[in-house]
Every structure is written in C-alpha cells, then in structure tokens.
Design a protein around this nucleic acid. Structure first.
Lengths: 225, 225
DNA sequence: ACCGGCGGTAAAAGTTTATAAAAATTTTAT
DNA sequence: ATAAAATTTTTATAAACTTTTACCGCCGGT
C-alpha cells in the first residue's frame, strides 16, 4: 500500500484530501507545521509528499530542500500563490508538480496518480499478491495487510513457491526438490513440516486453523486463495 | 543530447518553444498535424513529447494513446482548454503533465525539466541522492549531510551500485560480478563483506546497526531508503 | 486402544555474515 | 627508482543466525 504525507495547516483541506486519498486505498499521514513535517518525514518512508508552500512556521520550499538531501520521493506543491517565480522555484528545487488553489480534488488525484505512475512504475512490477499477503520480489520484503513481516531465507522461498502456484497442491517431494535440491537425497524427515509450521505462525491469522497454507491429507499442501 | 518532439499547429508557439528548448541544449523535432506526429514519432526515439490537444486533424489525446501502446516516454499536454475533465483525461490516459495556455515559457521549461528529472532523462549528469548521502558522479565526490566523505575507488563503486538500485536486494554474486568481474575470475570468499564493513564504517550513523546498507540474510544486501 | 500422518519443541549442526588483522598489491611522493 | 602510504585481498576467528535432527504428543480413522 502506498504511503503519502500531507503537510498542510488548513484543517478543512486536510479532511477533504484525507477522505479522497484513503478512498483510493492509500495511507495518509499529515503534518500541520514545518517542524512537525521534518520529524514525521524522518520517521517513515513515504511514496509521495504533498507540501503546502506557506506554513505557520516556515516554507514548504525549505522542507522540500531538506527532503531532497536525503530522498528522491515525489513531491507536489500546493499553494494559493500562483506567482510564476514561485512555480519555477518549486519545480527547480526538486518538486515534481505545483498545483495552485483553488483546485478540484479530482484533478489533484489525477496528478498524484500520474506522478506515482512515473516514479514508481519501475519498482512496482515483480510482486506476488494474494490472501492479503504481498511479496515484493525485488526488495525481498513480505507484507501482511501492509505490515512488514520478517521471514528467513528459507521461509521466503517457500512462501514464493506457494504464491506462484495458487490453489495447486504441492507434494512434499516437489517442494523439497525445489528448495533443497542441492543434493538428490532428501531424507525422510519432517524438515518441511517444521518450515510449514513456522511460515504459518508468521502469516496465518490463526495458525491453529490455517486458511492460506492448507494441508491436503496424503497429497501435500496448497496455497488456498 | 536529449531529443524532444513538439506536436503543435501554431507556428508562433513552435518558434518560441523551439528557441527556448534548443538554448537548453536539447534537440527538437516538430510535427504540425496528428498524422505527421504519428509518422515522426514512429521514426525516432524521443526523450519527451509535448502534445497540443487540439490539432487540425485530430486530438492530442489520441496521439497519446497511440504512443502509450508502444512507449513510456514522458508526455506533456499543452492546450487552451482548461476544462477540468480534459485535464483529468489527459493525465489518466498516460500524460505526465497538463499545461494550459497561456503559459510562461519559463514555467514550461521548469516543468519539462522536472519531468525529465523524474523519468530518468537527466539522470546521468546529475547526482545520486538518498538517505542523506549524495554522490556527485562527475566530480566523483561523496557527501554525507553536506560533509565531504573520502572513499576509496572500490568503496565508491560499491556505493554507486547500491544507490542506483534503491530498495533492491543485490546478491553477492551480482555485486562481485559487476565490480570485480574484469576477467571472469572473481575474488572469492570474504572480500565483499570486508568492503561492506568499511563502507558502513564511513557512511552509517551507527555502523553497529546499519540502516542504509542492510543485509538480507541468505539473499544479499540492499540500499534501504 | 492402536496406527499413521501431522504438528510442537528444543537443541545440535551447519551456514552465513561480521570483525580484526596481516599480507600483498597498487599508488603516490620524493 | 625507491620508500612510504594507501588500498585491496587474503586469512583467521568470532558471532549471529538458519536449518536439520531427534523426539514427543495430538487427533482422527479403524
């Protein structure tokens, strides 16, 4: 899920944007002062930042400069001033877009999407996603309902194998063959059982009654979607 | 040199833009009709396309759709109509920006630059920048929060490889292959971990608990942004 | 109750990564 | 050209973590 940061002091605008953005399935944090923005930004990783230019305790331009020292995150300026020099300034110091008030919410949303498309286009492919579990293959990260989950390399490979074969029963031999195929001999042990259990403990809502990795008696396991 | 394509039927606008863009050191081709645009675009590879929405023989939107079937090139719409629905349409069908006439040339240039920056067009002559680390590629200099840091050649190449692949897990083999594969025979065993350690010592706030170069056990390392 | 497949646990065994320091190599200065 | 300095590579060892193994108990079917 995408995380946005909105830095804006006008409460009614925050409410409006918050509603529209969350409806789109994005996460939105807000900061109402320049100072707060610095702290919040340092704290979390954002996929896009919307900055009001005029804030009670400083300028959005300064926040942008600070952000650009450490990050390439897309930045949209939002402001009442449509002075030509301000627009140029905002874009030249690293902003991606500059929108002047008043604006239509739907236009802002389209601009947000355009910029996200452009900036995230390359990173976004290569993920597996089902049952509320997302695997980002390039980053090697696993999320459950947006929350990061830590898997070991073995658990990770096992999960990938399941998610690449949704609703297909995988026999123990198939799984062992792919994940532990270094040497042809895999003894009759319960290695796989142990892995299944640990993976379930990490991703199932109720590991006692697994819904995602279901065991098919006598045949193997399957990733049930 | 960057190549831009301008699709526009107003000759005075063509002249103005042509002058400004060429002054920036870019190459500019023009097309004055939708039909011509199709032919010209198919012919050459462009780094950015500027489309007038209303053309004598068709709509810029249609050109955009056609381009998007085959290319990811950045597209800016230019138009007299500032109807909200048009703006949304332009952005939603794959446009990167939408500028309404009349506009200031300097604003257009800033928007062009912002989009090229974002789409990677101007990447090579600039700098890598994330996590408070800046690498000036031309100067071969590295800064941490503004302070110059001295890296050896090997450390520098390693850092660049990381920063060019943010949030992507790089396996030891990938890294060794790119940095040491001059003649097929890799240096083996521990060389990479030693480099990682020395690079961490120089750029991490607390090398004991690395935040930028994080190890992904069993998979490799990644530049975490 | 007995059997067989399944899951739980803990600890041993095995790997991978980190650290330190010495040796070899390259670069730089004199 | 040689010495000195800096850098790169290798070696050795330690620490952290992962995987395997062994053993135990549960539950459903017979």
């Amino acid at each position: 899920m995408k995380k946005l940061l909105l830095v804006e002091d006008d409460l009614s605008l925050i409410n409006g944007l918050s509603f529209a953005i969350k409806k789109q399935g994005c996460n939105l944090d807000t900061a109402r002062t320049s100072h707060e923005a610095d702290a919040v930004f340092a704290d979390g990783k954002y996929d896009l930042v919307i900055l009001d230019v005029s804030l009670p305790d400083g300028s959005g331009f300064d926040i942008c400069r600070k952000i650009r020292e450490m990050s390439n995150v897309p930045i949209i300026f939002l402001t009442a001033a449509d002075e030509e020099t301000d627009i140029i300034m905002g874009l030249d110091i690293g902003g991606d877009d500059y929108i002047t008030k008043p604006f239509k919410l739907s236009v802002l949303m389209s601009r947000i999407n355009a910029i996200m498309r452009r900036s995230g286009g390359f990173k976004n492919d290569a993920e597996l996603c089902s049952n509320g579990i997302t695997v980002r293959l390039l980053a090697g990260e696993v999320y459950k309902k947006g929350e990061r989950i830590n898997l070991t390399a073995g658990e990770y490979k096992l999960l990938c194998m399941f998610m690449e074969n949704p609703d297909i029963v995988l026999s123990a031999d198939q799984i062992l063959g792919r994940l532990w195929d270094c040497d042809g001999k895999f003894v009759d042990n319960n290695t796989l059982t142990v892995y299944i259990r640990r993976l379930r403990a990490k991703i199932e809502d109720d590991p006692g009654e697994p819904k995602m990795i279901v065991t098919v008696r006598g045949m193997g396991y399957k990733w049930s979607v």
